[in-house]
């Protein structure tokens, strides 16, 4: 997808350059917490770190030795620090739709808390439509292959995080359509036994976001695939507050890049108490799996 804004700007000999700015290497070291609980049964992770100066080229300073707890009315998980600043539940942990979860992080006697409601995904979309299309390799006869288009990132019924993973079958060689000459990158992946040819994650927004449109446009790429490929889509529910937080983060990061179409700057407001930053979220995960096996 092409960025649109540069098409305006390049006409006017504009330029972007990095500059120095006073105070760009100072930081207060406030606590930053990023974590989530989902309905997936797995080890869930909470990251604890500190703020950094504006100009950074290193990861955030992790905070070790914190006591991290996730609990609801029906369950309680005490997280274990696996690497500095990274705290995980046991691998059997999961969240339940309809419950409210409390995250509590205690650092040197200071308590940071956040609440998150695990709401259901209000609307479960249909799986992506896989179609048969004609593919014409260069200098070779046309052949029929399968194709699907990623759902659009704008105009969704409800906000959600979307993941899609495309895994070609182990016997890809045998199901690749006769006459199709696989691109080199695919052959390289297959040689390394890497069958996941696509693993994409993005947010789906109910509205239109002009800064996003002009930053990277609308997601509507298509993906060629073959019979036997598994397409696994995952939708993560989001509360309105969680979505507002994510939207704010995107407004200040991905959508900020080109200045002219960015929103007026504003702070990202999370749900961490005690002047903490970041967000603790809870999501239902709905997975849709399909394995197209034949051409129409």
């Amino acid at each position: 997808m092409k960025k649109l804004s540069y098409l305006f700007l390049f006409l006017f000999v504009s330029c972007i350059e990095t500059i120095d700015w006073p105070g760009d290497n100072e930081s207060t070291g406030r606590i930053v917490i990023e974590g989530e609980i989902t309905t997936d049964t797995m080890a869930h992770t909470v990251y604890v770190s500190r703020t950094q100066p504006v100009i950074v080229d290193s990861p955030a300073e992790p905070v070790s030795g914190a006591v991290v707890l996730i609990e609801s009315d029906s369950r309680s998980y005490l997280l274990r620090e696996t690497t500095p600043g990274v705290y995980q539940t046991e691998s059997s942990a999961f969240g339940v739709v309809g419950e409210s979860y409390l995250l509590q992080v205690v650092i040197d006697g200071e308590i940071y808390e956040a609440n998150a409601d695990l709401i259901p995904l209000e609307l479960i979309p249909d799986p992506v439509e896989v179609r048969t299309v004609i593919f014409k390799p260069p200098n070779r006869p046309a052949i029929e292959v399968l194709d699907f288009i990623y759902p659009s990132n704008f105009g969704s019924e409800v906000p959600a995080r979307y993941q899609v993973s495309v895994r070609i079958p182990d016997n890809a060689d045998s199901v690749i359509a006769t006459g199709y000459e696989a691109p080199q990158w695919l052959l390289s992946e297959l040689e390394q036994n890497n069958f996941i040819v696509s693993d994409t994650s993005y947010y789906m927004h109910p509205g239109l976001e002009p800064p996003a449109i002009f930053a990277y446009g609308e997601t509507n790429e298509s993906r060629l695939t073959f019979p036997g490929t598994s397409i696994v889509e995952a939708y993560f529910s989001m509360t309105p507050e969680h979505y507002d937080f994510v939207r704010s983060v995107l407004s200040e990061t991905e959508w900020r890049g080109l200045g002219p179409f960015g929103f007026i700057p504003g702070n990202v407001v999370g749900n961490i108490s005690n002047d903490g930053l970041g967000y603790f979220s809870a999501s239902q995960v709905v997975r849709l799996t399909q394995i197209p096996v034949q051409l129409d």
Binding site: E34, S49, T51, V54, A60, G266, Y279
Partner: peptide, 9 residues
């Protein structure tokens, strides 16, 4: 309005 510091998320 310019930032005074940053955090990772």
């Amino acid at each position: 309005t310019l930032p005074e510091e940053t955090f990772r998320y």
